[in-house]
Every structure is written in C-alpha cells, then in structure tokens.
Design a protein around this nucleic acid. Sequence first.
DNA 1: ATCTTATTGAAAATGATTTTCAATTTCAGT
DNA 2: ACTGAAATTGAAAATCATTTTCAATAAGAT
Lengths: 143, 143
Amino acid sequence: MPKETKRRDTWFACLQANDYRLTKPRKTVINVLASSRQALNPTEIFDLAREEYPSLGLVSVYRTLETLEELNLIQRVHQPEGCKSYIAAFSGHQHLLVCEGCGRMVYFDGDDIASLVERVEQESGYQVNEHWLQLFGRCQACQ
Amino acid sequence: MPKETKRRDTWFACLQANDYRLTKPRKTVINVLASSRQALNPTEIFDLAREEYPSLGLVSVYRTLETLEELNLIQRVHQPEGCKSYIAAFSGHQHLLVCEGCGRMVYFDGDDIASLVERVEQESGYQVNEHWLQLFGRCQACQ
DNA sequence: ATCTTATTGAAAATGATTTTCAATTTCAGT
DNA sequence: ACTGAAATTGAAAATCATTTTCAATAAGAT
Ligand SMILES: [Mn+2]
Ligand SMILES: [Mn+2]
Ligand SMILES: [Zn+2]
Ligand SMILES: [Zn+2]
C-alpha cells in the first residue's frame, strides 16, 4: 500500500475517532492534501479537489482545513511569498526544508540548536520554549 | 541621544537619499515603528500614529509600510497568531527571539546551525540557500 | 513666493475569508 | 433496507483587510 494511501486512511480514522462524519467533500480534500508533496493554498486545493468532485464548494475547503489543522494532521507553512498554504504535518518535532524552485518539501529533524538556544537564553535573559527553523534551497531535480 | 531617535533619523535620511519626500504621515508612522519594542500590524500602527497625527489615513500606513520594507528598514514578523506585523529590521544576518507574554522582541545572531545545514544537505540532496530561525519564550519581565 | 510633481485621504473596488441558512447527507438505531 | 436526528453542505450575503482611483494638498526645488 502506497504511503499516501496509508496517510489518507489514518486521517479518515482520526476524523471518525473525533466524531466527525466521513463526507465526500472532506474525503476529497484529504485525498488532495495527503498526497501532495508541496504546500497548497485553499484555492489550489479547491481546484485540484474539484477534478475529483466537481460540486465541491470552496467553503468546505476552508472548513476542512480548519478541522484538519485542529487535529494536527496538517500545518500551515510560512514562506516569503505568503503564509496561506498547508501541508501534511509530521508527527513529533520536525522542521521543513523547502525547494525554492518547485516547492517540494521534506521534513528533517535534528536539535543541534540546543546549545545555540542555551547561549541565547544566557545572553537575553529570556526563557525559550519553542523554536521555528525552516531551510530554503533547491531540490536535486531543480539544481 | 536615545537609540530610537537615532534610528528614526537614520530612516528619515534613508528616505531622502532615495528621493522620497519627508511628509508628516511618513514621519509619524516612522516614529511609531522606530520606537516600538514589539511588532505592530497596520491597524495598531494606525491607532498609535493617530495619537500624534489624527488626520492620518490608514492607506498611508499601508503605503509607508511598503516603502520601508522595500528599503529594508522594517521586516514582517511571522508568528503563530498571524504574519501581518512589522518590526525594525536588523542590518546583517540576525534572528528574532519573541516573548510569548508581552510580544517584546530581541535579535540574536549565531550561525551555529552551519553544521546542521550541512548534514541536512547530505541527507536530503537539497542545496540550502537560506534559513529562517525564530525562538519563542518569555522575557525576564514575563517569567 | 511660485511651480512642479509626489503624496495624501476619502471613497470605491477588489479579494479573501466567514457567516447565515435552507437543503442534503451521514450514520445510528431499527 | 428504512427512518429520523443531527451534522454537514453549497450558495449567497456579510465581513474584513488591502488596493486602486482620483481630486485636493503639501513638499521641495527654483
Ligand atoms: Mn528543532
Ligand atoms: Mn542564521
Ligand atoms: Zn525543486
Ligand atoms: Zn515579555
């Protein structure tokens, strides 16, 4: 079974486990998001999903995004061009590496920044709780 | 001379050096932004600036923000609650540390992540050009 | 002080997102 | 499979943020 299919089924199960109904609009939006290698904004999701389910309404895309984000299944991606697109969330603490050419994203982990955080805490007097780290570059195909 | 005054005058000079006229609306918006310790969104800037110059129009806030960003005097700040606020930019490569309590921000430097970047390049096949790093925590006053 | 032109604020236009609501669909209980 | 209660839907209207338009004003060069 391909990875995206597995993810899709996990999301379906998660919705049901949280008493959400498994409707056609939701399933279609999930199909699009669970199989995308790049972050998509509401309109992009709408256009792709309509190929599979033409009577889908844009409102349902917004509503489904809200639900999926609440369930931590997707996350908003911040980029210089805007912060309105979403991609499947990784479970656990991870960071994104974004291709500036094609938009393809991969997750990476690594908390090599622990010592940096410690130093900054010393110097600033702040107590650090969280960090955002995102790398931008070019994927193999786009180099 | 206090630091904010110095920054304000630098910005005034930068505008003039780029053939922008030094108008009341621009000066007022700059006064607000150059002296703020936290990021402000257009409406917040508008409200604060109107205390000094009541006939200011909101459009001018938007226009001035655009100009100042182009001149690299301010930068947009991305936060979980939104990405519409601006703060004075630091010259050179720096990162932000944001207080989750009061919003107060400080810059820090440190490219301790060079080795991390190298490792991720190896593992992913991407070529990394840029990185975003932002820390969130609590400032001394808010602890 | 005058002139040229950039800049302004009000109002209208646009674009994205949210709310409202009657019709439809899901799903639990039979 | 059938029924009914309740969640969910899409269309349309409403809201909110931002941009555009435009006539009036103000900055700065002469
Ligand atoms: Mn990390
Ligand atoms: Mn850095
Ligand atoms: Zn690429
Ligand atoms: Zn604080």
